[in-house]
Amino acid sequence: MGDMFRRYGKSATFIICLITAFWLLMLVILPNVTLLESSFRPLLPVTEIGGPNDQYTFANYLKVFNGSIDTTLMGIPVHIPVHVLTFTLTLFYSVVVTLLCFVLAYPLSYFMAKIISPKSLPTMFLLLFVPLWVSEVLRAFAWWIILALKGPLSSLLVWLHLIDQPIRWISGYNGVLIGLVYTYVLFMIFPVYNAMSSLDSNQIEAAEDLGSPWWRTHLRIVLPHCKPGIASGAVMVFMLSAGSLLVPTILGSTTSQWFTQTIQQWMFDALDWNTAAAYAFLLLLMCTLFVSLVMRLFRVKLADIAK
């Protein structure tokens, strides 16, 4: 702070602080507080707002437990509220997306950080970044076209005689998984790559010199070193996936439902913003809880991730 005074002078510092405060307060805190407040209020006709029925209540939150259905989860028949089911599936598939992203990102990061020559790194990064220049909507649609029943992927595989019938790729959660992995894998690659490139190559060689086979070197040396990077990538991919609306909307099938789609239905189909807000906060809260639980399980500290 004192440093800022010296560098920019009093008035400039004041203005900078003011702008930051405005941005935080008006664009981040206030809308969220308003939403949080309305999530505790019942949906009422305009005339009754502020009237005797306008009481704070948890009713909006408890709506997730309405309307149970019979289904099977991993072979076990269950009787479960439909929104809780959606929520559980959203969390589950977000975890799957996170794992898939890690499985893709780890070898790629290792390859970029430790194997290819630094000269070809800019090309690699360019290849990774180019898809980002196209909007997310277009990319999701591109996948929709690729994965369509009579789309290029099926045609190619049929032409190669690898399959004899076109495959319906977009069924269940497949399309959503592919789309989410494709959209968010970079958020895993960069932190893991960063962690990986900060690892002294001599440590890998030292392990090998002491007789370690490659897989054990990864398990004992590379993976532990990259843990903070993996954790921060995983948190990002998980949160973004669970909160994604676009990809599940475009690449979802008739049998896939994402929790954000439920929120959207409350908002635009039922026009009940209060319940939508309650659901949104529920999602935020549960995801945060889930992430902290997993972080504790893997002994990752918040400070590691922030690095």
Binding site: D200, N202, Q203, E205, A206, A207, D209, L210, G211, S212, P213, R216, R220, I221, P224, H225
Partner: peptide
């Protein structure tokens, strides 16, 4: 052979005894 690196390349995330016994661990 066993190589001692110019920068030693000890494993910072392991305790001293784990460092020393790493070669035995892999065996």
């Amino acid at each position: 052979t066993a190589l001692i690196f110019q920068n030693l390349a000890l494993f910072p995330l392991m305790s001293i005894w784990e460092n020393i016994s790493f070669g035995l661990e892999v065996r």
